[in-house]
């Protein structure tokens, strides 16, 4: 049987938790990483198994093991779903601390700063987790333990220097492509709904519907990581592809870990004014706040929005 390694001094306190996790897998259906890649080894349970493997010495520390523990958006959907009260993200954070001390580092989902940084320091102020600092001679430095991967820095960076290396389908380019794909392949398409991963969207999680059932779909839900990341270009993109409307779903006030909902509110308000100025009914861009887990409310909001769009008709 196994020998525990002493090198994981932060992770060590979770030894009991790692045994108490019953490995039921209830944590993985909603994880955006798993949903994107479909690999179980990207799911939260896999990270717990990795942490156990590292702590027990069954698995040696390696780039790929570190990569698994560094890849997480800290949306905490897994914790809400856990059957056994495991504080998954706290385990990941401690594992990250140990791995960093051993010389492993990201990139995971955490942001990194590239060469073309203009040193404007906007991202420092925008980061809700104080993960960014400016160091003389090194420029902008990201603390991978503090960074929670919300990606707000990426959207505020005017030079395109802040990046998430592994975005698991949540970066602007991917989302724009998926919005365009839905709008152009469905004659019935009317709306794009951007939802943060907290929204427990009412769609199927890990399976696909028969083609006959999706042919007449009027809206597509696209999961971004945080409402705070939704910027102008992305929100307007569906309109270019003849969308009748765009909906943004974020957490209720005070409920967002990154205060991204407040940013989203400002952005949407601002864009509604823009729409008005070009004589497009601002009703076509809606923001709704959905309490975590309330799929029914979310579906009702979408249905109301689509009904409203049906009254408004296409944009002429």
């Amino acid at each position: 049987m196994k020998n525990k390694t002493k090198a994981f001094k932060h992770l060590e306190k979770w030894e009991g938790t790692l045994a108490n996790c019953i490995r039921c897998g209830y944590c993985f259906e909603h994880c955006p990483l798993f949903k994107y890649t479909g690999w179980e080894s990207d799911a939260p349970r896999a990270k717990i198994i990795t942490a156990f493997g590292l702590l027990s010495g069954e698995m040696g520390p390696s780039e790929s093991a570190a990569h698994k523990l560094f890849s997480c958006f800290y949306c905490k959907r897994c914790e809400a779903a856990c059957s056994s009260g495991v504080k998954l993200t706290e385990v990941f954070t401690d594992a990250k601390k140990d791995l960093i001390e051993m010389g492993f580092n990201g990139p995971g989902t955490t942001s990194t700063t590239q060469m073309n940084c203009a040193r404007c320091l906007i991202c420092l102020g925008a980061c809700p987790h104080e993960a960014r600092s400016h160091e003389k001679g090194r420029g902008i430095v990201v603390d991978p333990v503090k960074c929670k991967g919300c990606g707000i820095c990426i959207e505020v960076c005017p030079a395109g220097a802040a990046k998430i290396q592994n975005s698991f389908g949540t970066n602007r380019k991917d989302l724009m492509e998926r919005a365009s794909l839905f709008m152009t392949t469905h004659t019935s398409a009317k709306a794009i709904v951007f939802a943060c991963n907290w929204s427990y969207y009412p769609d199927l999680q890990a399976s696909a519907l028969p083609d006959a059932e999706t042919r007449d779909k009027s809206y597509e839900i696209l999961v971004n990581m945080c409402g705070g990341r939704l910027e102008r270009q992305l929100l307007m993109a569906p309109f270019i592809h003849n969308a009748w409307g765009v909906m943004v779903a974020v957490c209720p006030d005070e409920k967002c870990e990154h205060n991204g909902n407040l940013r989203a509110k400002e952005r949407v308000e601002d864009l509604r004014n823009t729409l008005k100025s070009i004589r497009i009914d601002p009703e076509r861009l809606q923001l709704v706040q959905i309490p975590a887990g309330d799929k029914t409310k979310f579906q009702a909001e979408i249905d109301t929005f689509v009904d409203r769009l049906n009254v408004l008709g296409p944009i002429r």
Binding site: S41, T50, G53, E58, S62, S64, A65
Partner: peptide, 19 residues
């Protein structure tokens, strides 16, 4: 396809006591 040892380690478990 996955052949990295860390992926293999993960796929070596299910909800049982075995690995």
């Amino acid at each position: 396809i996955k052949t990295d040892p860390s992926d293999l380690y993960i796929y070596g478990s299910d909800s049982s006591v075995h690995h």
